[in-house]
């Protein structure tokens, strides 16, 4: 058994969670409030953070309840060795530990072009080639070593993907070589398959399902630019049919799956409740609520 499987064996199932980032609770769904009202539907909070904005009051409030959190980075180019600076590592680990994050995760490609500075933010997928795999592996290993937390790379969304590999092959290679888990974003995978005219479940042969620890699901919409059709990852309430299809297929096979995040925080809570119920049916989580003691 590798170090990763040792670690993951000790991590309990987190259940179904909701995402958020700096200030998102002020504009969309407030995770704390949703959890208070629907404790059976929302079990953990995934905070999307970057060094520039840090932690917000809302995630600190969630963390203070003792309910689980995960830390999703929004500012590191995993496929670029030069981008992983010691400052980034130290400060990110500090933030993740401050909210008692169970693990680190995030889109593994590029969150910015060039150096990390204002105006450079733009999420781009990795170039799907072996050189990029190897550089990503180095960075993930270093993050895992220094943080002592699992680091789960996520397949990013895009309209354009370059490189000769299928995105599932790319992430399978990373996971095996870095001895890490995978965050499989079903909506992003549906986008990738559409961009290459592939069926939603293409590429799962030889895929290490046992390394899928977390999954994301979110709404998307088919758009067109100058007659060119693509799926926009707009995080609207309703996931596409192909996204559901991927989720169902992988849940049945990912025996170490610990968490599913419904990325819906920009919508109204009532638009998302049905899908929270559906996700909990597909991936039930029995959480022991802390018992009140009266002196």
């Amino acid at each position: 058994m590798t170090k990763f499987f040792d670690k993951i064996a000790k991590i309990p199932r987190l259940g179904v969670g909701i995402s958020g980032e700096f200030g998102s609770a002020n504009k969309g769904i407030e995770a704390c409030l949703l959890q208070e009202n629907y404790p059976e539907l929302v079990h953990f909070f995934e905070y999307g953070g970057d060094l520039d904005r840090g932690l917000d009051e809302h995630v600190r409030r969630w963390a203070s309840t003792g309910l689980p959190t995960t830390y999703h980075f929004l500012d590191i180019n995993i496929e670029e060795r030069i981008d992983l600076t010691s400052d980034w590592l130290v400060e990110t680990i500090e933030m993740a530990k401050e909210i008692n994050a169970t693990w680190l995760c995030g889109d593994a490609g590029r969150w910015h072009f060039g150096r990390r500075e204002r105006g450079h933010q733009m999420l781009m997928p990795p170039i799907l080639c072996m050189d990029s795999v190897l550089e990503s592996v180095d960075n993930i290993r270093q993050i895992q070593e220094q943080s002592a937390l699992c680091c789960l790379p996520e397949n990013p969304p895009s309209v354009v993907y370059l490189g000769e590999m299928h995105i599932l092959e790319y992430f399978a290679e990373i996971a095996e070589r870095a001895d890490c888990g995978i965050l499989l974003d079903c909506a992003h995978l549906a986008i990738f398959q559409h961009s290459r005219n592939l069926a939603p479940l293409t590429g799962f042969d030889n895929f290490p399902f046992e390394r899928v620890i977390e999954m994301h699901i979110a709404g998307g919409v088919l758009k067109e630019t100058n007659g060119y059709q693509y799926i926009d990852d707009d995080h609207s309430p309703e996931p596409l049919e192909s996204t559901w299809q991927i989720l169902k297929y992988v849940i049945e096979r990912a025996k170490n799956l610990r968490a599913i995040v419904y990325e819906c925080e920009h919508n109204a809570a009532e638009e998302c409740l049905d899908n929270f119920i559906k996700l909990n049916e597909m991936f039930p989580c029995k959480i022991e609520t802390p018992k009140l003691t009266v002196k």
Binding site: V159, V160, L162, K223, T225, N226, G227, Y228, Y230
Partner: peptide, 8 residues
């Protein structure tokens, strides 16, 4: 890559 994709 379809050249139209770049300007989405």
């Amino acid at each position: 890559i379809d050249s139209r994709a770049w300007s989405y």
